[in-house]
């Protein structure tokens, strides 16, 4: 399954006071590609993801899914945080998408259990989310998206609120599950290292209005792990991305010494 975005624009508000959140965004993903999207906060990357998910209509432009779709959902989203329902236990949260599609209880539990094992939460199946840590809750959200078996996975800064160590572990787990299922993933993040470590390509965006600055190929072999982060190549890419972002970030936090104009 592939995704193609053509000239996507998004305006909030109307008339002269309208603000442009996204400006002519065009890109496509390959089959089974892991695409990282990085940009400063407020660059519209979450908005873009919601448009791709069909949760927001674009003001202009089209989102096209092409390829075989054997009756499974087009996309499933992993939300930033708080997307896990506190009133359902762990396994009902994971099985939520299947339940919405009326998969019989026994079958959806069996499938959910399989993914709970993969994220190391099998023994927590009947616990309530509030008894679990933030990292565990994000694992639930990831398992919920994978078990739904979508054509394309959309992830909106899923590790944004985790501490550095937990983040490393979840990145690793995500790569493991992904390499097993090879779904097309669009992964939004504001962490440069995370974008490079996970992605086949990194799409770098700038803000107000949100635009694509550059799409960078990441050629590290898979399976990848933390070790690639100390290679020359990694550092070069990181500096390259930072150089694009620095001007942007400087502009958004204000001051004279960061901007591209100096």
């Amino acid at each position: 399954m592939k995704l193609e975005c053509r000239n996507i624009c998004k305006l909030y508000g109307e008339g002269t006071t309208a603000s442009r959140a996204l400006d002519t965004i065009s890109f496509e993903t390959g089959e089974g590609e892991f695409l990282s999207v990085i940009g400063p906060s407020g660059c519209g990357k979450s908005t873009l993801l919601k448009i791709i998910a069909g949760l927001l209509p674009p003001t202009e432009g089209t989102v096209t899914y092409t390829g075989d779709n054997p009756g499974t959902p087009l996309n499933s989203m992993v939300f930033q945080e708080h997307g896990v329902f506190p009133w359902m236990n762990v396994i009902d949260n994971v099985a939520f998408g299947l339940e919405m599609r009326h998969v019989p209880r026994k079958e959806r539990y069996a499938q959910s259990m399989e993914f709970l094992k993969k994220v190391g939460l099998a023994s927590y199946a009947t616990r309530n989310p509030h008894e679990l840590s933030v990292g565990m809750r994000q694992r639930i959200a990831i398992a919920r998206a994978f078990v739904n078996n979508p054509a394309i996975l959309l992830m909106d800064e899923p590790f944004g609120s985790l501490d550095a160590q937990t983040r490393l572990i979840l990145q690793d787990e995500l790569l493991n599950i992904w390499s097993e299922h090879r779904k097309t993933v669009i992964f939004v993040t504001h962490d440069i290292d995370e974008a490079i470590l996970l992605g086949d390509r990194v799409m770098v965006m700038s803000g107000s209005p949100g635009k694509i600055q550059e799409i960078i190929d990441i050629d590290f072999q898979r399976p990848r792990d933390l070790r690639i982060e100390s290679t020359r190549e990694f550092i070069d890419i990181r500096i390259r991305i930072w150089n694009i972002l620095r001007a942007e970030v400087g502009r958004s936090i204000g001051g004279d010494n960061h901007g591209a104009g100096n």
Binding site: K50, F79, H82, M88, M100
Partner: peptide, 23 residues
């Protein structure tokens, strides 16, 4: 965000009421 999750995962109006809004 709960409504967005429900919509993204294909909840019907009835499922939205019984699984999200009521609890």
């Amino acid at each position: 965000v709960y409504f967005e999750v429900a919509e993204n995962y294909g909840a019907s109006q009835w499922q939205l009421l019984t699984r999200i809004i009521l609890p």
